[in-house]
Amino acid sequence: MGCFGCFAPAARRGAGDLKPSKLAHHCTDDDSVADAQRKVAPDVGSGCAHSFTFKDLLVATGYFNEANFIGEGGFAFGSLESHLFDVPHGKPPLDWNTRVKIAVGVAEGLSYLHNVADPPIIYRDMKAANILLDEDFSPKLSDFGLAKVGPVGDRTHVSTRVMGTYGYCAPDYVVSGKLTMKSDIYSFGVLLLELITGRRIYDASRPKPEQSLLTWSRPFMHDKRKFHRLADPALRGSYPPSALNQLVVISIMCLQDQPHVRPIIADVAIGLNHVASQPYASLASMGSPAYSGSPQYSRTPSRRRGGGGGSRRVSQHAS
């Protein structure tokens, strides 16, 4: 709405003269409602917004009938935070494939802000609470209150007061106040680590050595043989080990202290799509009629002598 002329004294007097009975009469007139809706609709062709009266709004919305209410704040399936942390008893945790799908969607949303939006946008408030999910667990970035227009031309950064959520802010940004696209990359690395572990970036309810996710995870992230120790116990081992390793590596790359070492979000999205191309499917779900037929993981005989025992090898078969 480009004009608020409806709040002028004359308009207020006009609105006060409208009795509920009269409004109800007008709202039952399909032609009147259609005319009002057409009048309220913006004139896209002219590039200008319409000004309209309060009465127009009342008629077009059916006296602000709740049946015509689109929504306010929040989202129709909650945030990632509500599905990932402190899952109540009886509610299934997010499975591996869903976590990877969310990671891919968030990376692609961030890629749009960095590479498609003109001028580019630095999100600056990446966190699980700001990732909203629909019923298909497709993620949407929300709450752009801290977003900033990114550097353009010869500028390498945006100087600003340090703001964001504790634990998610890149260390270089915290120290210097210089905000860059790579600040978002660090925050995304934290989010990715939360998806892998099922742990909050900071959780005061845990024993002190485990309260900081970054502190707790560091010994495991430095040794590939210990990557599996990072996996959320709620997954109960239901994930492809090689894909887990790849996800951990992507998180490590994003969490580098030096911003110039962190990857750009477009490369992160490519890596995550590769991980998503290796979905986990249990043997039970493979034989189920409900199984969708996407790429599967199955057991194959070991290459070790004897062929029967020892390690398990994972292979991918096209559907």
Rank of each mutant, 00 (worst) to 15 (best):
R199W: 03
R200L: 06
V175G: 08
D203K: 04
G189W: 04
Q211A: 11
I196F: 00
G198F: 00
D203F: 08
E194M: 00
T215S: 12
P207R: 08
Y202F: 15
T215Y: 07
T197V: 01
D184P: 07
Q211R: 15
S183H: 10
V175E: 14
S183Q: 11
L191D: 09
E194P: 01
T197S: 06
T197R: 01
S183R: 12
L213W: 02
I185L: 13
R199Q: 08
T215I: 07
D203C: 04
K208E: 15
L179T: 07
D172M: 11
T215F: 05
D203P: 03
D172H: 10
L195F: 01
L213V: 03
K178S: 11
G198A: 04
L191C: 05
V174I: 15
R199N: 12
S187A: 14
T180W: 13
L191N: 05
R206A: 03
S187P: 12
T180Q: 12
R199P: 09
I196G: 01
G198I: 02
K178F: 05
I201H: 05
V175H: 11
L193V: 02
K182Q: 06
G177H: 06
G189A: 03
E210Y: 11
K178G: 03
V175R: 15
L193G: 00
L192C: 02
M181H: 13
I196P: 00
S212V: 14
I196W: 00
V175N: 14
I196D: 00
Y202T: 11
L195P: 03
K178A: 14
V175I: 15
A204W: 04
L195K: 05
S176Q: 07
G189V: 01
L192A: 02
T215K: 14
D203E: 13
K208F: 12
L179I: 11
A204P: 13
D184K: 05
P207T: 08
K178N: 10
L191G: 01
V175T: 15
P207V: 09
G189Y: 06
V174K: 12
E210A: 12
P209E: 14
G177F: 06
T180G: 08
L191I: 00
T180R: 09
G177R: 05
K208N: 08
D172T: 10
K178T: 10
D184M: 05
E210P: 13
T197I: 00
I201K: 10
M181E: 10
I201D: 05
T215N: 06
L213Y: 07
D184V: 03
